[in-house]
Design a protein around this nucleic acid. Structure first.
Lengths: 216, 216
DNA sequence: AACCCATCTAGACACTGTCAAGTCCAATCT
DNA sequence: AGATTGGACTTGACAGTGTCTAGATGGGTT
């Protein structure tokens, strides 16, 4: 395919080639169908080659997850800077970026938040994951400073993240097919976007507006 | 162990024994470490025995997921009837039941919402999943009828589900360890419970209270 | 020019899911 | 009663997997 000399003994950038192959396998076969040997096959190397770059399968998946987090950070940041200056508009933007990334990178998104069979201790994964989280954190901090300066960031942040992440997860696992229209993505871009923001900002309302057992 | 004749050629209730073994394997080794042969080993039968009851691995996991959905329905219903008569209190109760089940059945919860490597077409799984969803649906319908009779149920339902599901997922995958206290479950039972309800009910607020780009 | 060492290969091992064939046993039929 | 039928389970095999070891290769350094 590429002009790159693919028949050398030393591949040159086998690491990158393996990551690309891994992403292809992931998107074609799903997270359950992922295989080290298939990745090696697509990169045109022997089955044991990946081990020299990633250690074992968990290490490989960790690096793939890091790639995913980096791309997710880009998706969120891109939409954030394109949106208006208001902090709520930016929160809406990164929420949409989060969900759009999940839809466009199904299997990758799934392994990014797994703890089973993936090397969570990988420094690169922790860096990339932290960077993605930082976007959420910074944006939520801006929203709170602007609209609820008395509130601590943490519970609101966790809950807003939960809302967006849960929606993305259910959407990806086709769990919302019965609820939304034929394709939830179209709905998402219209009505549901505002509702999503509403849900997110619901996380920053003060003490429960209507506690359990309290009459309306 | 049991008085049941365990040395018969025909096991008697191998199906149930395999399901129990499967759940043990799932909770001990995690979803990634699940293995048909290990389940057969623990049930004291040959490695091919499970196939006669569940077809293949995907069929086995589907049946395990169905068991999980049934137990989850119980967890939600139990807490709902124990709560007060108010619909919001009941919504809060099933939310807590949902999350408590996820925490107490980590790996089982994970496979329940997977679409990879699990027989989603299994009638029993669809029945159990539908029943669990029905609890959410009915409770949300009651909340809307009581507090927002003008609103259609669907978007609110999907978003409230997203919020609870996302929180449970992130909690289980240890993604919130940095956010919440040392163990998020303790927090959950105190402050965060109300905030969670607040987040859920945020889904039923009408048109966005503060759209993006609109000043407060 | 000779060496060194990271890079990659080749082979082996234990393990997995699935398939085909055979074995066992309880219940039914004559 | 004895024969038979059919479901439950076993046995053995096969291709595929992750990982380990030892060895082959060749680019970069001295």
């Amino acid at each position: 395919m590429t002009i790159k000399t693919a028949d050398r003994y030393h591949h040159g950038d086998l690491r990158e080639a393996l990551l690309r192959a891994g992403e292809d396998v992931l998107s074609e076969r799903g997270a359950a169908g992922f295989t080290l040997r298939e990745c090696a096959r697509r990169a045109g190397v022997s089955h044991a080659a990946p081990a020299h770059h990633f250690g074992d399968a968990a290490g490989f998946l960790a690096e793939l997850a890091a790639v995913g987090f980096d791309r997710m950070t880009d998706a969120m940041e891109t939409r954030r800077v394109q949106s208006g200056p208001g902090s709520l508009a930016q929160l809406d933007a990164i929420g949409r970026g989060y969900i759009a990334f999940a839809v466009q990178n199904r299997a990758l998104f799934q392994i990014m938040f797994r703890q089973d069979g993936i090397g969570v201790a990988s420094p690169n994964l922790q860096r990339a994951g932290g960077a993605a989280f930082g976007v959420l954190q910074a944006t939520m901090a801006r929203v709170l400073a602007e609209h609820r300066p008395d509130q601590k960031p943490m519970p609101s942040l966790a809950l807003a993240w939960s809302a967006v992440h849960g929606f993305a997860t259910l959407l990806i696992e086709r769990q919302l097919d019965g609820c939304l229209g034929q394709d939830g993505i179209a709905d998402l871009e219209t009505d549901l976007g505002g509702a999503m923001l509403n849900l997110m900002t619901g996380a920053l309302a003060g003490p429960a507006v209507a506690g359990p057992g309290k009459k309306s």
